[in-house]
Amino acid sequence: MSKKQDAQDAGEALLDIDHKAHAAAEQKRGSLTVRVAGMLSDIGDQPQARMLCAGVLLLGLARRDARLFGAGARMLVAHELATAAKSAVKHRVDRRRPRSASDRDDEKPRPGHSRDKEDNSFPSGHSAGAMAIASAYAAVYPQHRVPALLGAGAVAAAQIPRCAHYPSDVGAGLAIGAASSGVVSLVWRIVLRLTRLPV
């Protein structure tokens, strides 16, 4: 079997998982639990996420805590990098959101440039932003890594039952967020080495 065939089979298997998750989520979509989880997960939306980052940054400034200020700055930069990266992908891939998909063909990602929100399911921006922020914070405060990453995971996971995203959208978003935070951490270390700043 060729590598191309292996990749196609893996892609079909992933789409099958997405389809089954969508079918299961559709049945629970209107439940109180899903609605509450959806509202709480909105902290991963861009305005709320930026406010969270700015709040940490300002708290560090008010307390004259260079470490906390640095964490807030890293969170904000990582979030903006993740937002730019997911937007770049969204503007090149069209995929109907689960809540708007009318058939299995709608669930498949394809090359495209639609600006319609309902055609921009891939990747999940909430997942990318939440993971970028959590990873950036955990890089400064490793003792809080587990709750930070669990929080990001909860924001990401909530996108599936609310029919905003498929599991593969969420996985791609988490990967973008983690990679964005990794880039920021690398650049941050280089800057600190060159400038010897205390953050």
Rank of each mutant, 00 (worst) to 15 (best):
E107L: 15
S102Y: 11
P161K: 00
V170E: 00
G60H: 12
A49L: 13
A71G: 06
A23E: 13
M51D: 12
H165N: 04
V191I: 15
A175R: 06
D42A: 13
K108Y: 11
S135Y: 04
L68H: 06
A164Q: 06
S121D: 02
S2V: 06
R50C: 09
L57Q: 12
Q46P: 13
D116Q: 15
V36Q: 01
Q46A: 15
D18M: 05
A49D: 00
R35P: 10
L68I: 15
G30H: 11
G38Y: 09
V93W: 05
P111D: 00
R95V: 14
G30N: 13
G44R: 02
S185C: 09
K108E: 06
S181I: 03
S185M: 08
D119Q: 11
P109K: 00
L40H: 09
M51A: 15
H113D: 01
V140R: 02
A10G: 01
A132W: 03
Q143L: 07
A71P: 06
K86L: 01
A49T: 14
D103P: 09
R189F: 09
A54P: 08
V187A: 09
D103K: 06
V146R: 11
A154L: 15
R35S: 14
A88K: 05
A164T: 06
I43G: 04
L197N: 05
A152P: 13
R162K: 14
G153W: 02
A13R: 11
Q46Y: 10
A62H: 10
V93N: 03
L68Y: 07
L192E: 00
G151C: 08
Y141D: 11
A23K: 12
R64Y: 11
A78N: 05
L57K: 14
V36A: 05
G60M: 11
S41D: 08
R96P: 10
R74S: 07
A84C: 04
A158Q: 07
R115K: 14
S127V: 01
G70P: 07
S181V: 03
L194Q: 10
A13G: 04
A178P: 04
G153P: 14
K20M: 12
L52V: 14
R35Y: 14
A71L: 12
Y137S: 02
D169V: 05
G72Y: 12
V170Q: 01
E26N: 01
F122P: 08
I43W: 03
A49I: 12
I43E: 00
Q143I: 08
I176E: 00
P123M: 02
P123D: 00
H91F: 15
A138K: 04
V89T: 07
S185K: 02
D42P: 11
Y141L: 13
D45P: 04
M1W: 09
L61Q: 05
R64S: 15
A37F: 15
G60F: 14
G38P: 07
P147T: 07
Q27K: 15
E12R: 13
